[in-house]
Design a protein around this nucleic acid. Structure first.
Lengths: 242, 242
DNA sequence: ACCTGAACACCGTTCAAGT
DNA sequence: ACCTGAACACCGTTCAAGT
């Protein structure tokens, strides 16, 4: 408690501001007080700093939003890693995909603002791409065609978050060199995109036909419900003969 | 072009402001310039009026957002009516539901801001309730249980917009007298909610178990994809014996 | 290199005032 | 009854300035 300690305190009153620290604080703030409470001024307060200091480490608020989405997908990756390698035989693909999606959901439930941010600003982080790539890999191992995988990603992905939209719908054509670059860290996904883009080069809507994807997912649901309806009816008429 | 005409012009330079006119203009503005461009000041400009004038007809911006969602569901109802009465026999329920959902989607594609507004503010208009009620009616005619219908609504509804969430998840218990009141204009839906709430009164999460609903929808999709995978495999091994 | 303060152009909204 | 103008408390961001 001598003057030296006090001096040290005033000369290093807090850990230095970094991109990481800003993003962590932003994610925590949104978790605790909601997305609307995540303002530059409130965030600065949380960090014991003036609002404008943040701009030295991140260019603007959009960068912060992209950053916290990135953090969230890093958590999802950690969750998946904790579950161990989810490779499976042909029949087991479904359980493996299911586990990954429910894992992602567990993380997203801890960050309720994340789905909102993800699909109102079509953010697109490497961690997100790798997450999708893992799912593509599992499906590919089961022998599915890239086409079926592609439709299935739309059907499933729309359910959890809109990531597939970004991956394809927006950029009319495949982004120039981006696909080659993706090959290094998301090989399954890159292979799928290459084939899908090649197969249907003159789709009126560009890369993916939104309407087709929507109907594919809808029909999956309707067929499943119909099967359950028939099961109910059978149950009702003769539960004995089972 | 005499002085009289000019006088008439200046004494009645525009049609009077009404709730209807404000909401129409708001919807049009959002269609044209996007949701972010829908500000009180820009909306007033569009109407040839000062920003504060709007507050005489609607209490605040949230009321405007609720109002434009209401308008959108009115359009969806008109679209459904144009398709004629979509009553069907047991096996035809699926086509009837499909038609209604694709109709809703056509309208929502004209108002891309609508899904965003609907699920970031959990708005809840009578027109929306009636839309859901129509779907419940069709499913009920096919002999499905209320339980199956309930799960199915979650699975399908999440896909188009989050309306079922509002209907149930939020209010822990059924809203006091609201259910009785609903009976008059949404009888099928009211019946379903009454039975579902009764059947599972001590659900840990309140009315609906979100996790259960999520897994129901996910499994529907996974099962459907698995069937298509098997079809692909069969096609590959012996396309001749079909 | 890292942080700050004042200022700008926006927002939704309150409130007292006009006709 | 219907509309307005000034003002308030916010927002993200620019810019020149401090250390």
């Amino acid at each position: 408690m001598g003057p030296k300690a006090a001096e040290t305190r005033t000369s290093a009153p807090r850990t230095p501001l970094t991109r990481e620290r800003v993003l962590r604080a932003a994610s925590d703030l949104a978790d605790r007080d909601g997305l609307d409470a995540l303002t530059m001024r409130a965030l600065a307060d949380e960090l014991g700093v003036e609002a404008m200091s943040i701009y030295y480490h991140l260019p603007n608020k959009n960068a912060i939003l992209d950053g916290v989405v990135e953090l969230t997908f890093a958590e999802i990756a950690a969750e998946a890693a904790a579950q161990g390698p989810a490779r499976a035989d042909a029949a087991g693909w479904s359980a493996a995909v299911r586990a990954r999606i429910l894992g992602a959901r567990r993380v997203l439930l801890r960050h309720p603002w994340a789905p909102v941010v993800i699909d109102q600003r079509k953010s697109f982080s490497p961690a997100m791409v790798r997450h999708v790539d893992g799912i593509v890999g599992v499906m590919r191992d089961s022998g599915m065609s890239h086409d079926l995988i592609h439709h299935s990603l739309h059907a499933i992905g729309n359910r959890v978050y809109g990531y597939v939209q970004e991956l394809s719908d927006d950029g009319q054509a495949p982004p120039p060199g981006q696909l080659e670059q993706m090959q290094s860290f998301a090989p399954h996904l890159a292979a799928m995109l290459a084939e899908v883009a090649h197969v249907d080069p003159e789709s009126t809507l560009g890369w993916c036909d939104d309407q087709t994807e929507f109907e594919f997912g809808l029909d999956l649901l309707l067929e499943g419900i119909e099967r359950r309806r028939l099961a109910e009816a059978a149950e009702r008429s003769g539960p004995a003969d089972r």
